[in-house]
Simulated assay, not measured.
Amino acid sequence: MSLVASVSELDVLNGLDVQPPWMHQVNQPVTYPRMFVEVAQDYGVSREQVLRYAGLPANILDDPAGRLSLLETWKVLLASLCLTGDPTLGFQNGLRLPLTAHGSLGYALMCASTAREALTILERFWHVRGRGVLLMVSETNDAPFFELVPELPMPSALRDLAFSSMLTSMYRGMQFVLPMLPASSEIWLQGAEPAGFQRWQPQLPAVHFDMPRAGIVLQGDRSWLDQPLPTANPEALAQAIAQCERENALLDAVDDVVRQTRAALSLEGGGYPTPEQLADKLHLTPRTLRRRLQDQGQSYRDMLEEARCRDGCQLLANPDLEIQRISELLGYNDPANFTRAFKSWMGVTPSEWRAQRL
């Protein structure tokens, strides 16, 4: 059996330089790791084997309404990947997850009156279904882009596994709720195309690998956003929203600091905000902002580099912008510094990256 992830990656989870307290809180739905274990069973791998490999109790998944910590959830996912040796496990898992697996949020999406309302609900309550990955909604080439962003560093094998599952499940849910979903939609993933992926491609939209960001792009005419949905149910929607609100009220307000910081680190006319400007924008002192980011395994410097990588890739997609100008917009006085930084992010120089995609 060829392991596409290894025990060392499980050790990475145990030995993260910073393990924020919320990573150990038992607040993750058991639904998602249970489904990964069920998919692994199709390969002849038992639940007991997966949990033993992950170093977890044999009964931890027994209660369908149970909860795990984020660290435990990640261990189950990596253990399933290691023991099956199939790098397409995430796609298989995402294709199996029904919309109802997402609890109150899934029911709210089913009962929304229009696609626009459903997508607003998804953005508003995404976080109630667990921690570890943020949903950021933006525009890419004038099309809505639903981006997944890790809240703290993830091993690449875990990131590719989790993101392929989440985006596949999200797309299938959109197909169910939005029968008029544009056929030109795309899934973007940051890792390389895994061996065996082509057998799942017919059930998915166009999937692009080795991308600078991970998410779903909804291309095409936007008139479908305001068309009535066949599953709309105002009364059931109100009940589902109320339950989402109750779940949201149980979450610690400090959880929003990473999402708010990412949103505030946008490229504006004068460049990116300084730590002091950012703290002021979030109504925090610089010291409090720094401490809250540290509590979640983040720092201003790391998030600034992430924003520069994201925006650099977007700017390079415009062939009319010179690389020297892009480096200036991103805050690099010397284009050589931008080139070195970009190669450390993407493995190629800015000019090579642009040539591969234009």
Rank of each mutant, 00 (worst) to 15 (best):
A264Q: 11
D86Q: 00
Q260D: 12
L81G: 05
R124N: 11
S46A: 14
L218Y: 01
C313F: 05
R340H: 14
L122F: 10
S80A: 11
V39M: 08
S113A: 11
Q175C: 10
L109Q: 12
M35G: 00
I326N: 08
V133I: 09
E38D: 08
T120V: 13
F146A: 09
L229R: 02
T114Q: 01
R96M: 04
Q298S: 00
S184Q: 06
V4T: 02
G55L: 15
Q356P: 01
M180I: 00
T120H: 14
E276L: 05
G191Y: 01
T274N: 14
L158A: 03
L134P: 12
R159Q: 02
R246C: 11
L77H: 04
L161G: 02
D42M: 13
L99P: 00
A238Q: 15
R340D: 14
P20E: 10
Q314G: 13
T114L: 06
P230H: 09
N248I: 03
N333H: 04
V133F: 07
G271N: 13
F36R: 06
L97A: 10
V177E: 00
M303E: 09
G44P: 02
V207A: 00
C313H: 07
G312T: 00
R259T: 08
L278C: 07
L16S: 12
V137R: 10
W74P: 01
G271E: 12
F145E: 11
Q41T: 15
L358H: 14
L284K: 09
Q314Y: 03
E352L: 07
M136Q: 12
Q28P: 01
D11M: 06
L229H: 08
L237Y: 07
Q28I: 14
R34F: 07
L225P: 15
L251N: 03
P20V: 14
A118Q: 07
L70E: 08
V258T: 08
E9L: 07
L330V: 08
S299N: 05
G196Q: 01
Q296V: 00
A341H: 13
W126I: 03
P273S: 15
G196C: 00
R301W: 06
M110W: 06
V37W: 10
L78D: 11
F145G: 12
P98E: 05
G220F: 05
P212G: 11
F209H: 08
Q277T: 15
Q219L: 06
P228I: 09
P179S: 01
P29Q: 15
S138F: 06
R67N: 02
S104M: 03
A108G: 15
A249P: 00
Q294G: 13
G15D: 15
V39F: 04
A58D: 15
L278G: 04
E247G: 04
R96T: 03
R116C: 07
V348H: 03
Q41E: 15
S113R: 13
L316M: 14
R52H: 11
Y53G: 02
F209A: 10
C309D: 15
